[in-house]
């Protein structure tokens, strides 16, 4: 049955803005992005929203729905309380361009700081499934940057100049654990990426729409590798003795 639901959507730009109310006729199975599209089509043609696939694969429609970082295309209306308006705001960590669109280009600048995949010289290009499994999880990342948005180190403390953020710890982990990669990024991880700022409160994992276990499988293993190299005297000694 079609049902009228209220929405409060942020309208504005870097200079300021406000929440504006809209009423939308909703149907079964609708997601927040459907409602935003309907507002755009019928009531506010100038409403700015970034989207592409509507299938939780492009990572474009990241926003904050009722205060929680989410993909609008993956947030069903019937999962949200019907007794109050649905509030949609842009991601708070990134500079606002207009309405629901933010400037996430800082992330691409961070990405450039990470040395890309560097194949082992004369390596045999055969690897076993058990080697693939671990890094394959990280390939699920759709770069929606919800993890970056929710991370309190970036969101509250604005440590962008010295902290890469969870998305790029996932990338660092994917490269560091890659069985065919020869580059060493541990020094970068320790001294430049700011992995020590992460206090593993797992908000990045909670908001990841691809269910990547960012903290357990990427950040903590990176922290442990950093401990191996920089903090653990016994491992240091063993490395020297056995030249590993």
């Amino acid at each position: 049955m079609p049902e009228q639901r209220s929405f409060r959507v942020f309208r504005g730009d870097a200079g300021g803005g406000q929440m504006k109310e809209y009423t939308v006729e909703t149907g079964p199975g609708m997601v927040v992005l459907d409602a935003v599209h309907q507002i755009q089509a019928t009531q506010a043609p100038d409403l700015a929203v970034r989207w592409n696939c509507k299938a939780a694969k492009c990572g474009s429609c990241s926003a904050e729905v009722n205060g929680k970082p989410k993909l609008m295309c993956k947030t069903r209306l019937d999962d949200l309380p019907a007794d109050r308006p649905v509030e949609v705001r842009p991601m708070r960590t990134f500079p606002l361009i207009k309405d629901l669109v933010t400037d996430v280009s800082w992330n691409y600048e961070v990405n450039k700081k990470i040395p890309p995949f560097t194949p082992k010289p004369n390596g045999e290009w055969r690897w076993m499934q058990e080697d693939v499994d671990r890094v394959q999880e990280f390939r699920k990342c759709i770069e929606c940057f919800l993890c970056q948005n929710v991370c309190h180190v970036l969101r509250e403390h604005q440590k962008q100049p010295e902290f890469f953020g969870p998305r790029f710890f996932v990338r660092l982990a994917a490269l560091e654990m890659h069985p065919m990669d020869a580059a060493d990024r541990l020094d970068l991880t320790h001294r430049q990426s700011g992995v020590g700022y992460c206090n593993i409160t797992k908000c990045c994992t909670e908001v990841c729409p691809e269910d990547i276990h960012i903290t357990d499988n990427a950040i903590i293993p990176l922290k442990e590798r950093v401990v191996d190299r920089f903090y653990d005297p016994v491992r240091r000694l063993l490395r020297k003795l056995f030249r590993r």
Partner: peptide
């Protein structure tokens, strides 16, 4: 666009506390 240094202009929605 973002400042290349990484410093971010505060989003007008930002409220601390």
């Amino acid at each position: 666009m973002s400042d290349p240094s990484g410093a971010q202009a505060r989003n007008p929605l930002y409220r601390a506390g």
